[in-house]
Computed example of a mutant assay.
Amino acid sequence: MAKKIRVLNAVKRKLFNKLGLRYRDNYFVDAFYKKNSRNGVLKIGEHADTNNVVLDCSDSNDEQKVYSFPKRYIYEIKDASIWTPDNLIFCSSGKLIAESTALSVYRLLWEVPLPEFKAKKYLSGQYIYLAINENYYHWLLEDLPVFITAQKLKPEAKIIAKKTQFRPALDFLEKFFPGRYALLDDDIKCESLVMAAKTGGMGAPHDHGVVHPKDVEIVRDWFADYMNPGKRGRKKVYVSRVGRRRSPEGEEKLVNRLKAEGFEIFDGSMGLFEQIEYFQDVEVLVGASGAALTNILWMAPGSKVVKLALDGERLHFFSDLAFYCDVILHNIDVPSCAWNDSIRESIELQLNSLGFWGGDSSEKL
């Protein structure tokens, strides 16, 4: 059933995009609070109070860009329903709270009726739901910060999440909340759900994916005890897609060349805390846009990232994150489908011009 609904919503999303329709802010949790009390939404705390943020641009021709963030709060939602397959939260009147999910398909479909579902379980008491979007970027920077804020405000609340094999989330729960969480595979309704506003802190509802500086700060503070750069040699690392769906043809040859130049190869197979430890000692990180670049979060200030901009894309996700973490980001434009000898040579030449190629580059950094 869930698969059919996803397919249907994908079709709707394409139609919405073609028609130029976008979502509005009246389906976010703050709007439910402002409308009336019949939705069972109560404001109980504050999540972030950042307004205008000015960023230096390393991914476009602009010198600076400004994000205008609304104030964000923490809410208690009475008789909230949770559709676990896609982490969707509904208020007591059955309306979708669009910011409960990191999936743009639902944020785009704010006015399209979603299939009704009947909760199979009713949970008495107060709960905090850890949304688990099985994408490292969205989970770490969207789902996790608001969970941390809610949990700090209501540490006595019970913790629930959907049943998953997503290793970073399981590592997180087992490290910090062993024996205190439950993984559910049923659609549920709970007497009281605590959640912090999420979408409103991402620049504006019209700009999906903007990183909120407060969320970056929250995550880094939470893991501060695990972020102690060691005295080992600084590493040059390449994020490899070899063997994966989005690996460009010919990438394996580039990997072999990078190995010969002293690069280590990261394939994403580490657990959460292994990645935190590993990337603290990365001085140069090279890779195409993808979830693995989220590990900028753990890199030391002054480290460098070279993003291989496939087909010249200039998505702001990682440049914003680098800015907040005081990491320097460069772009190298490359095609996405196939990397022949001339393209690989061009990548090598540009890495060389940045001082990251040829022998021990540590003195050039």
Rank of each mutant, 00 (worst) to 15 (best):
81 S>Q: 13
121 K>V: 10
234 R>Q: 09
133 N>Y: 12
69 F>V: 01
167 R>W: 04
69 F>H: 12
185 D>I: 03
258 L>P: 01
362 S>N: 07
222 W>D: 00
359 G>V: 11
325 C>R: 13
68 S>K: 06
274 E>V: 05
365 L>P: 00
32 F>V: 08
132 I>C: 02
214 K>S: 08
155 P>T: 07
312 G>R: 01
38 R>E: 10
66 V>Y: 10
316 H>N: 08
328 I>T: 11
234 R>N: 07
222 W>N: 00
126 Q>E: 14
182 A>F: 03
140 L>I: 11
210 V>D: 05
43 K>Q: 12
203 G>V: 08
5 I>R: 11
243 G>F: 13
224 A>M: 04
97 I>R: 01
244 R>D: 08
299 M>Y: 05
10 A>G: 06
204 A>D: 12
24 R>A: 07
150 A>I: 00
158 K>P: 00
133 N>Q: 11
297 L>F: 05
123 L>C: 03
266 F>A: 09
220 R>P: 12
334 V>W: 01
229 P>F: 12
41 V>K: 05
268 G>V: 08
307 K>R: 15
92 S>E: 09
155 P>R: 08
315 L>E: 04
169 A>I: 01
253 K>T: 14
326 D>R: 14
124 S>I: 04
286 V>Q: 09
201 G>E: 00
360 D>R: 12
253 K>M: 13
123 L>V: 04
326 D>E: 15
309 A>E: 08
152 K>I: 05
113 P>T: 11
19 L>C: 10
230 G>D: 10
210 V>K: 09
102 A>E: 06
351 L>Y: 04
138 H>S: 06
293 L>W: 04
46 E>K: 14
217 E>P: 02
344 R>L: 13
298 W>Q: 02
